[in-house]
Amino acid sequence: MKIELRNISHSLAEQPILANISITVESGQCLLITGRSGSGKSLLFSIICDITRPQQGTVLIDDIAMPAMTALQYARFRRDLGVIFQVSALISNLTLEENLLLPLNRHHSRLSHDEKLQKVHGICEEFGLTQYLDQRTDRLSSGLASLAGLARALLMEPKALIWDAPMAQVDRHWCRHELALLKHLKEKGTTLILCSNRQELIVSLADQQLQLGLPEELASGGAHAAQAQKCQ
């Protein structure tokens, strides 16, 4: 999935946070978005996921602007984009199994219930979550919930994965596992967009890096607001 940001600008409470950001992530490439806290990484994340519409500019998916997509194209975009939030964002009054079944019920209604359960149990085994399948997700620890959020995104075998703060909530063992998983996804040709401050861990994966500046820097016009660079 090719993702292109074209002249994206957005302000919050009349303070410009993102100014004129343009970057293209070709299919199978990895973009690392970095910047200090408050620089707008999560805002840009939510714009790319189409949770927030940008005040100016457009996001294009496979060269089609989001507002111009047909209902079918948009449903495909939703199915093919895996999203992992900074917080686990699991539906708290559902069990882990019900949480994982939700996207399958939405996008794979033709699969039988047993086939869906098989997929859910398979991914839970991979992430060591099998024993928590019947637990409500608000009773999971933050580390386990973070893994469950990752499992939910990967369950749909996305063509692109966008991840806000990867490796932020898990222990060293799962951190290594997540890094290996990202490498595997990249090899498979999945487009990756990672918003992170821990660039030392994932910079080796990145084809491009987008460095966001702080809003004060934007206002003063001093430093570069957003710098895109190709990684070696």
């Binding site: 939510s46 996921c49 189409d50 949770i51 449903a75 939703r78 199915r79 984009l81 999203v83 939030f85 900074q86 917080v87 964002a89 699991l90 539906i91 708290s92 009054n93 939700l102 996207p103 939405r106 996008h107 939910r152």
Partner: peptide
């Protein structure tokens, strides 16, 4: 209360992101 808390915990964002 339930929907308000879901907004705060980004659960609504997650639903939108899943196409629900």
């Amino acid at each position: 209360t339930e929907l308000g808390n879901m907004v705060v915990r980004k659960e609504i964002d997650a639903l939108i992101a899943m196409g629900v």
